[in-house]
Nucleic acid binder design. Structure first.
Lengths: 414, 414
DNA sequence: CTCTATTTTTTCGAGCCTCGAAAAAATACT
DNA sequence: AGTATTTTTTCGAGGCTCGAAAAAATAGAG
């Protein structure tokens, strides 16, 4: 249970503070770091000199803009791009992509591939993933030793220990321990992340002012997913990645959902549901396997043109999302929302009904003050979140003396 | 933002560990504390000798049962009951109760009072609260100086800073900053807590095995409330006490809820809703102000006797709770549930429909493994939770050197 | 071009804190 | 009475952070 703080934990934690301050701030001077961490200048000086000696940080002749000031100019501290690297794998419907990212967060290599995830047998799916990773690792330009971590993101439910995919809409297969598989194959620590959680992580890095301590990222795609940050931390369920917003019950016994149950939010707001309603196929119609983004955009265009079943379909989606968000807000209070995915591009069609629905719920009091951002393209967000998640892990490993540091660096000698 | 750890924080935190280890374990020996905290024997020895010197802990000639062992017998450490005391105030529908609790957690005085909260004007309600507290503080048997904290719990929504009641079903009044009022009046730090959150706190102290890191306490009373513990911490909303499970939407546009909206879980499962359905008054009927516990018990008895509208009313309540829990489980995954309040005594009537509903939701996969506890009497739980919450605050104040310690104790001199 | 003011960074000794090992204390068993 | 065993305290060593002072590096003034 509650662990006491050992004396040597102190340095560990404060190293952590310094590294994360540098990652957040870009090129802060030692003085700035001292200010944000609350530690003394002497401490920051000692720690950063250690980190530079270990090749984790490097001095960069800093902000020329501010060098107009008097005194001794600040020396910016930056992450040394060569200190380590991470590899991200994003597995989504019929699509697999990997990227290699250096310690400073820059993409240094990538590869993408189409594949038929829905019909692929287990071995083949796993094989494709390991193969694409292996190809990247065998790249002669890459120092394999520097790859410190792999983060794999997938649509669907992952376990709360970030080891396995439990269930995913992109494949009928279940319980694939991707993290263990990749670790076993390549001997590099790996984690298995939920795509929407990675979206949330990315949003926070992109716009820390708007997405700080509490916010919601909702994926409006074939299915409905959610990434939730509460009190500054990624929210996960007790056993799984949790936050299955799409499968909150909107109408008990209602429309047939892809998950086999009835009345889920997704059964009204997922692409297949909007499609089904627009085509007036009835709520019991079996969900179609996939609707292309182009088809969805065409559907939205038609809905904008005339008040027909297409517009009504988007209205129903908005209503379901609104009541769902209302129930969510009853639990966590309102927070900024980012709508991501192809249907976020049709948010103009969704928003009126959504706001009307929210107004009828507990969140309704603040209905006006709730603001929505839209971002139609989810893949870059997911990849970015994966990268930052993996890099944060590496940061932690680096200041944990117990762990072998894989970067080609030697300890400074006092 | 992220604060570094100063050198003097170390002692503070480790003192915290020791105190909370003692509060949890009852009368642990120094060796046991060392084991649970992971700190060395020397450190525990130093800290506990400080704490004893300051009058916070005391040695108690420990477990005679274990003194059969060889070696030097363990000396149990106990909280010194006189180190401080706290005062709890529980304000519920037409009922106000206070208790004074010593540092070891024993009730040393209490007082209860009926009052008409629904019609009472603002000044009077506040006046009643301050008056009952003043009476306790003026008790000649009590050392006023020792009262280190006041915790006030109320049914309804409180703000996330534990300062004010925002809204409550027990009064039409809103936005009463009880914590500030009591602090101003008596000069004793006070907090304003949500009743269901305090239930959850109490459950954890009562049965730490069952209610550890993740669990749900649901109040089935006139209204429906929830206290939620996730990852070992009390879950609150971003702005308010949050966790308004009762106002998640069960059926959009459905039955009229006491909150003025439609289709909330509470509009089917609150006492007034069960009453309304049992009396076949229609879902639009204005909720009655109060139903006595005796009436509810009579209703449950009739429902058990024959399959009439009463039984159907409980079935609907179960359905609403089941779908609500199902949606909640979609977000947080299933967790142990405690049903508290008068209708928890009728859980046999509620459970079948509840389980059936859950089975139709995302939580359904684990439907069988979800276990429910029942506790018909909420008041003792709330009071107990309040006491532990207040005592935990005092624990924190005691190891924070910045704070003036109000207990009559002097620092040990080295 | 030199000197001064200013700001950043490093150095150094002081003061704490935790730890491990050893000693001391307190009991049961023989 | 002596020995084994377990708990608790003592003590010196090693680390860490801090504040103050020194050193470093620049802009502006004369």
């Amino acid at each position: 249970m509650s662990a006491g703080i050992r004396h040597d934990d102190l340095r560990r934690r404060n190293r952590a503070m310094v590294i994360s301050a540098v990652r957040r701030a870009g090129q802060p001077s030692r003085t700035e770091i001292a200010a944000t961490t609350g530690l003394s200048h002497s401490t920051i000086s000692a720690i950063s000199s250690d980190l530079i000696g270990e090749g984790i940080l490097s001095e960069s002749k800093a902000n020329e803009a501010i060098s107009l000031k008097r005194g001794r100019p600040q020396v910016g501290l930056a992450l040394n791009p060569e200190a380590a690297a991470v590899l991200t794998v994003v597995l989504s419907l019929n699509f697999l992509s990997v990227a290699v990212i250096d310690y400073a967060g820059q993409v240094i290599a990538e590869e993408q591939r189409r594949l038929d995830t829905l019909t692929m047998p287990r071995d083949e799916l796993i094989g494709e993933c390991t193969a694409i990773v292996r190809r990247r690792l065998e790249d002669p330009d890459l120092d394999v030793q520097s790859i410190a971590r792999i983060a794999l993101a997938i649509q669907g439910i992952t376990d709360s220990h970030a080891r396995a995919m439990l269930w995913s809409p992109i494949t009928p297969l279940t319980n694939i321990a991707f993290a263990d598989i990749l670790e076993g194959e390549f001997g590099i620590p790996a984690t298995m992340e939920n795509d929407c959680n990675m979206m949330a992580v990315a949003l926070r890095w992109r716009d820390p002012d708007r997405y700080r301590d509490d916010f919601i990222a909702i994926l409006l795609s074939h299915g409905i997913g959610m990434g939730l940050v509460l009190k500054g931390e990624l929210f996960t369920g007790t056993h799984s990645s949790g936050g299955e917003f799409g499968h909150m019950i909107h109408r008990p016994g209602g429309a047939l959902c892809r998950c086999g149950r009835r009345g889920c939010v997704e059964a009204y707001a997922g692409n297949y549901a909007i499609w089904r309603n627009a085509k007036q196929m009835g709520e019991d119609a079996e969900p179609v396997a996939d609707v292309s983004d182009a088809d969805m955009r065409a559907l939205a265009a038609r809905a904008r043109e005339a008040d027909g079943p297409e517009r009504e379909a988007y209205r129903k989606a908005g209503e379901a999302l609104g009541f769902g968000l209302g129930s969510l807000f009853a639990l966590i209070d309102p927070a900024p929302v980012a709508m991501v995915g192809v249907s976020a591009g049709a948010f103009d069609l969704i928003e009126p009904a959504l706001r009307e629905a929210i107004a009828q719920t507990a969140g309704g009091q603040h209905s006006g003050s709730i603001s929505f951002d839209t971002e139609p393209n989810e893949l870059p967000l997911i990849r970015e979140g994966c990268a930052m998640q993996a890099l944060s892990f590496v940061d932690q490993e680096i200041f944990a003396p117990g762990t072998q540091i894989r970067a080609g660096s030697k300890k400074s000698v006092a």
